[in-house]
Amino acid sequence: MATQHSRSAARIMMAPAVFLLLVWMLVPLSMTLWFSVRSYLPLRGGDQGFVGLENFTRFVTSSAFWPAILTTLIIVGGVLLISIVFGILLAMLLDQPMWGQGVVRILVIAPFFVMPTVSALVWKNMFMDPVNGLFAHLWRFFGADPIVWLSDASVFSIIMIVSWQWLPFATLILLTAIQSLDSEQLEAAEMDGANPLARFAFITLPHLSRAITIVILIQTIFLLAVFAEIFVTTGGAFGTRTLTYLIYQRVLESQNVGLGSAGGVYAIILANIVAIFLMRIVGKNLDR
């Protein structure tokens, strides 16, 4: 509800943001689409013309594709599982009355603010180094042989590093959601004879379902794009090559832009599938 005057002012004031984002989206996207149907090798002859959908079939049939998809799924799924399960437990614990709640909260959230390259390096060297890392010391203390984490348990190691970064995010959001639960609901359930487990299953969990969905969707979008953690630790070796990393290697390392762009289109489609679900939830929330 407003006047014609304010409506036209609104259009003008919105224009820069809309225009910039439109350019930012359309130009690179159409370039990616263009490259994806061409044979384009900047260091080996440049643009060698239209090849139809060849890049798309080659990308999918290359021996690296399915392992990359599997690695991506394992890493995304693993981190999601860890951050949601422990996130719920931790959020419920932090919601309890205790001394120094504010400080504990800060301790738990801190990893989220650590630069991805820093957390990858710190974990890689100071904890997972097979000779001097803390884990190696610990293993030796118990008389075991230290594990060469980043080659023998590479995917698991990456999951651990990334989970450490994202568990705080999940915890923080779930904690916010738990705190918005009306304690009278829980008390009513208690009066109705529900034991703690039943109260969790029938009151707390349903209340959290929306927050959980949002955490899953947002984290999925960020996790599909995990890059620095792999770049710094394994460089994609030892089975840690995700779809994102595979595309990066095709484009910048082996300079096969056509093939990489086709992979990029796949990545965009994959992210969009997740995005549609997220936008539905966010959009519904807008109408309130």
């Binding site: 996207l29 490259f35 990066y248 990489g260 990545a267 992210a271």
Partner: peptide, 20 residues
């Protein structure tokens, strides 16, 4: 418009790495 703006955020960076 709001949702569209959000969708540009979802664009995987690697998908537009080479153009940029």
């Amino acid at each position: 418009i709001l949702l569209w703006m959000l969708s540009t955020k979802m664009l995987p960076a690697v998908g537009v790495l080479y153009p940029i």
